[in-house]
Design a binder for these strands. Sequence first.
DNA 1: TTTATCTACGGAAACGTTTGCAGTTTTATA
DNA 2: TATAAAACTGCAAACGTTTCCGTAGATAAA
Lengths: 340, 340
Amino acid sequence: MNVDIKMLAKHLRLSISTVSRALRDSYEISAKTKQRVKEMAAQLNYQPNPYASSLRKNKSKTIAVVIPEITNNFFALAINGIEYISQEKKYHVLIYLTHESLLKEIEVANHLQNGRVDGVLLSLSAETNKYDHLVNLKATGIPVVFFDRICESIPGSCITTDDFEGGFAATEHLILCKCKKIAYLDLSRHLSISSKRMQGYVAALNKHNIHVDERLIMQFSNDVSANEEVITDALDSSDRPDGIFASVEKLAIASYNVCEKLKINIPEQVKIIGFSNLEISSLLNPSLSTITQPAYEIGKQAALQLLRYLEKKNMTDVHETIILKSTLIPRGSTKVTSFK
Amino acid sequence: MNVDIKMLAKHLRLSISTVSRALRDSYEISAKTKQRVKEMAAQLNYQPNPYASSLRKNKSKTIAVVIPEITNNFFALAINGIEYISQEKKYHVLIYLTHESLLKEIEVANHLQNGRVDGVLLSLSAETNKYDHLVNLKATGIPVVFFDRICESIPGSCITTDDFEGGFAATEHLILCKCKKIAYLDLSRHLSISSKRMQGYVAALNKHNIHVDERLIMQFSNDVSANEEVITDALDSSDRPDGIFASVEKLAIASYNVCEKLKINIPEQVKIIGFSNLEISSLLNPSLSTITQPAYEIGKQAALQLLRYLEKKNMTDVHETIILKSTLIPRGSTKVTSFK
DNA sequence: TTTATCTACGGAAACGTTTGCAGTTTTATA
DNA sequence: TATAAAACTGCAAACGTTTCCGTAGATAAA
């Protein structure tokens, strides 16, 4: 609001350009002058105007994080990682939530074309089934790094986990726990993570010679009560599945809720495993078996990748995909109960 | 990057100023011209440079959210509310995490003096015991609205909950559940929420003529394992408390972990209640009795308050405090078990 | 001594907007 | 028809930086 570089220069009886250079440690300025300038700047509490600087340099030192939702342990952890790297490199982090809506995602992506940010970290919304908005965004020269819910049809940087292996492991785990009829609860058929996890599911069934029943592959929305209804329908029948593989945390939780309501015992009557970053999975009743992603690390890697790219002189489009490993943690919800 | 207002003007054979005014719907421009301009702008995909605008107008349409941590359901929900209001009013949201560190908070607050944001929403770190940095920030003319962990020694706007009543209700609930020896698990003695909740705790004990035992009032840090050690010490003795009131979610969780480890039965041997926004409290083993804050609403109100303030012509310093109500939800962890 | 190189700094343009002021045309009023 | 008011539009100065040039003086090389 107050003291600008002009005033600083006046106090110092130096030119504006000299002050600017001194503050940025230019080689053209003598050590003595630099020190004088810096001392005076500190004394007057000079705060450079970031917008003037951004305008001139055409760099904002700001990145955008575009995610489907924030009340989700995975994304909260990822942001934690992103923030860690960003603040270390003096970048600022803008948050945009799409609430799993394609329209919102398009709106955000289009807006970000205006240069408000130097780069974008993005995880697709569940609804997203076309990618023009993202192609356009990249076309304006703004680097985009996808994380977790990546976009496979756009070349570029991606940070993700071994979803196929995770899906395979989860399913095989259920199979080894004697499940014969395993349901796959899916968020959206468009998402990379969903299809990869499902492929793992199918592969595991195939390996163990279990027929893939299409009716056991269920799609869900963002509507909690609608989801629970679907699960209720599936579980409230005589030939209900004896195993549930939830591709995302909230579907595992929804399954728990339904089982509670229907008085279905986990793991005796149905075993449940799900992708989840719930730190208290072990405290659930029963404790939830999970495939857990290194969410914090994903955030860190995504931010690192983007910032590394932004600091590069030659902005050649890197096309690097980093795949981190998830880990399966068996707990009570898939415990094999003895016959009685 | 590309097409700027100058180019737009050239295409339209109009002056820059006319174009600018037309885009902003100035009364000085004819409807016909406005339409022409807007159509051309859309056609050329003109994106106004936000930094040029910010520089000129000395307004950034950006707010900062400064919170202790994001992997916390309360804050995630609050951000959700903040984002909801912000995007509605076309504001952008920068996130800064202090990780409960005073130094970090000071660093962030000082940085924000430079005008990068028009206003700040802040929840104090657990370590914060002096407020110069916040006084300075406000002194530069940047409005600050506190939410949840408010700063009582600085006049200004605050959004919080009825922490005294919440603490009182939680404690009385334990008392009515026959607890005789109730521990209070506190995050930091500096925080407004902590002291308010503790006052409620003390008041409830007094009302029921229960002696306030200082040894039952325990302080905790941000270090999970250290916290669990303290709780272990408290619970692993013959005269352990029979009731625990956790002032924040993570201490309730820590208590669960310790009880599990020590094979202490909840609620038979010890009853637990805690402030928490865990949506799956009911699925814990046993389900957790909670005092739940309207976190989403707090976020919304905080953002509303700040933005209302920013849009005001006369920036008179409002000093409004909004107190929302928490609700006590009794569940399994405080259930009175019959004598056997 | 002349010329070239370096060091340290200043002047001024540029970044892309917004806006005060002035100017021109059109319309309304007398 | 003359004149005042209203309706449009343009010029140019900001906003606070960064950076391209240019230059004065000092030092080194010829």
